[in-house]
């Protein structure tokens, strides 16, 4: 009984701790992204701390609720969006630290949780009773449905491989990925398949965090920020934070699946520092990996292509990326059989 109570308190405290890490880090990532994107566009760009000033400003501004809006849903949507995004982070290992809710959920749960922020955005969009927000919400749903399949296919292909090699493991848990890094267990076919899956997952991430070319739900020049068109002040600030945290979540997921390596096993024989020191080194290395993943799935893609139309987005996800992930699945199947 007492341990139960302790567990609950620990979960609450850990959620706080993880928000304290994820929100500032997400904002910093946004700042770095903006700075790098600006340099790739041949301009200077804002200071790295700009997102912090943006959020500060948004939280000081008046929050306006449109007259025709369903106000409770309209106000609840941003909170739901941020809360659910932070929740996902509780299931993902952060570098050297295992997930806080280890053993309570697996990758399948994460896949389902990932839809909740999008659903919250859709709900907020419909609740704000603006034609632009309605179009944006419809587009968000289309987008959500289109990237779901490649995402699931990616995860299942990898899990299949792990479960075939280590039938005793709980294959769907992310710690299994961490124990058996996929690059180590794959044969030549499997490596090719895994590279394809990595690219698919990077492109799915771009859609998941709604950036160009898949930012059809926000599309500034078409539907004036879509679902967010009526949002202002604190509510918009919360959506902004949720977006920042979601970037961290998606990149942490990719890192956990594809690059679960730590520096410490490599360097321990040579350098001797206390174990908490290694934890810090590994954590910093994890942050570096996150930034690199974010650079490729967000910054680099969004500066080098134009925004797609809705039908083109569906074609890319349901057509090319689904085909690519199925191809990778076949390659990995070959790898398992040989």
């Amino acid at each position: 009984m007492l341990t139960g109570a302790f567990e609950v308190i620990w979960y609450i405290a850990a959620s706080f701790l993880i928000s304290l890490f994820a929100i500032p880090f997400g904002l910093l990532t946004k700042g770095i992204d903006r700075k790098l994107a600006a340099h790739m566009q041949w301009r200077v760009g804002p200071p790295v701390w700009q997102p912090f000033w943006d959020v500060k400003k948004l939280f000081q501004k008046e929050t306006i609720v449109p007259e025709d809006a369903i106000s409770w849903l309209y106000n609840a949507a941003p909170i739901l969006c941020l809360a659910s995004t932070v929740t996902i982070l509780l299931y993902i290992p952060l570098g050297p630290f295992p997930p806080i809710l280890e053993g309570h959920g697996d990758v399948i749960l994460i896949l389902y949780l990932l839809t909740i922020p999008s659903l919250a955005m859709v709900a907020g969009g419909f609740a704000s009773s603006s034609p632009f927000a309605s179009v944006g919400a419809q587009r968000e749903m289309v987008l959500m449905m289109s990237y779901e399949f490649p995402l699931a296919a990616t995860v299942i292909a990898l899990v299949w491989k792990i479960s075939s090699l280590y039938p005793q493991e709980a294959a769907f848990s992310l710690t299994a990925f961490a124990r058996h890094p996929i690059w180590n267990i794959m044969g030549p076919f499997g490596i090719v398949g895994a590279i394809v899956l990595l690219i698919v997952l990077l492109l799915v991430t771009t859609g998941e965090i709604t950036k160009v070319p898949f930012d059809i739900a926000e599309a500034e020049t078409e539907i004036a920020e879509g679902v967010f068109v009526e949002y202002s002040g604190r509510n918009l600030g919360l959506f902004y934070l949720a977006d920042a945290v979601k970037t961290v979540v998606m990149s942490a997921l990719i890192v956990a699946i594809f690059f679960p390596y730590n520096l410490s096993p490599l360097l321990t024989p040579n350098i001797s520092i206390p174990s908490w020191g290694w934890a810090i080194v590994d954590f910093l290395f994890f942050l570096l990996k996150l930034e690199i993943v974010i650079f490729f799935c967000m910054t680099f893609i969004r500066v080098s292509v134009a925004r797609f139309r809705v039908d083109q987005v569906v074609k890319v996800y349901w057509g090319y990326l689904t085909l690519a992930s199925l191809l990778a699945l076949i390659l990995i199947a070959l790898d398992v059989m040989l």
């Binding site: 340099h39 790739m40 566009q41 041949w42 500066v303 080098s304």
Partner: peptide, 10 residues
Amino acid sequence: VLKLLFKKPF
């Protein structure tokens, strides 16, 4: 864009 990344901003 990769080339521009290492170029001085205009």
